[in-house]
């Protein structure tokens, strides 16, 4: 991937349609089952292993592009960056040569204690400056640009003064990083925190979006929960269509992490993403806003 000039959509690799690489599908993938153009691997499942998981990842990488997607960078933590983690990530990246490296706009540890969650940040100027500095440090350390994903959110902070989409936009421009747009998370957070999901997408700089996530949520009655345990909902497919119209062609993938279905069912979901993509492209509406915006 070129890391030179910022703000050009073509900088991001056009990977097509991918899925999360999960142990439940190792045999299918290694047997050459078709359907996915690329795979996204959860970084933490591969940085502390030299056993079968890493061998599978290397085998997959020999035939397909791979993206590394982390959950433990804790980019917004008040703690110092975790150098052990960053070294492990860099070693894995050097070994795998991923097409993309991503993590989340969140924090997951404080005072050295890991909380194993994607916790919400106060969207303030103080926090924005803090995250920008850390993204720059991480990118310098890795020698690559990273993408940050909008998380699913269940509560906000009174201290927040910047809407999340604006926060991400400013962050991406000032840190020269990319964005991983999780369309399901936009929908979940929009319902949970009562904002307009399309206005959110309108505020995202299209040229910064290097990847899109699709997933299923669960309706808990009091809120939507980002479970990744079922098919993508109709609302999210519609939002995906809207996002594509704004962003243009972009690497898209389906996450399914709980109640994981057979490979063939996962491919059906991916084929639906392909259909939406094809419909948007054939309509001539693709990238209109991206060019304008």
């Amino acid at each position: 991937m070129s890391v030179g000039r910022a703000g050009v959509a073509a900088d991001w690799p056009r990977l097509g349609f991918g899925v999360g690489l999960r142990a439940e599908h190792y045999e299918d993938v290694l047997a050459g089952s078709k359907g996915a153009d690329w795979f996204e691997a959860i970084t933490e499942n591969y940085i502390d292993t030299k056993g079968r998981p890493l061998a599978v990842l290397e085998s997959v990488r020999s035939d397909h592009p791979v993206a590394l997607h982390g959950v433990a960078l804790s980019i917004g933590s008040a703690d110092p960056l975790d150098r052990r983690y960053l070294k492990a990530l860099r070693n894995l990246a050097d070994r795998i040569e991923p097409a993309l490296i991503s993590d989340h706009l969140c924090w997951s540890s404080v005072d050295g204690r890991a909380l194993f969650d994607l916790l919400p940040l106060p969207l303030t100027e103080e926090c924005l400056t803090h995250v920008i500095e850390r993204v720059c440090s991480v990118q310098d350390f890795l020698g690559r640009r990273i993408l940050l994903e909008n998380p699913s959110t269940y509560l906000g902070w009174n201290a927040s003064t910047i809407p999340e989409a604006e926060f991400l936009s400013e962050l991406a421009e000032r840190a020269d990083c990319g964005l991983l747009l999780d369309v399901n998370n936009v929908h979940v957070s929009a319902v949970n925190l009562d904002f307009d999901s399309r206005a959110y997408l309108d505020a995202i700089p299209a040229h910064r979006v290097g990847q899109v996530h699709l997933a299923g949520f669960s309706d808990m009655g009091t809120h939507l929960f980002d479970t990744h345990s079922r098919a993508v909902s109709d609302e999210v497919w519609e939002l995906y269509r809207y996002a594509l119209e704004r962003i243009g062609p972009v690497a898209s993938m389906v996450e399914w992490d709980d109640d994981i279905p057979p490979w063939s069912r996962l491919v059906e979901e991916l084929d639906r993403a392909r259909q939406v993509h094809a419909q948007v492209f054939s309509s001539g509406e693709v990238g209109r806003a991206a060019v304008a915006g």
Binding site: F116, Y154, L155, G156, A159, S160, L193, D194, T222, H223
Partner: peptide, 21 residues
């Protein structure tokens, strides 16, 4: 320090994180 939409139950929202750990 936290906020949720007026009709939402803040305890249920905090519980997402408290129970997730």
């Amino acid at each position: 320090w936290i906020c949720v939409p007026s009709e939402a139950d803040s305890a249920a929202r905090v519980a997402v994180y408290v129970q997730g750990y």
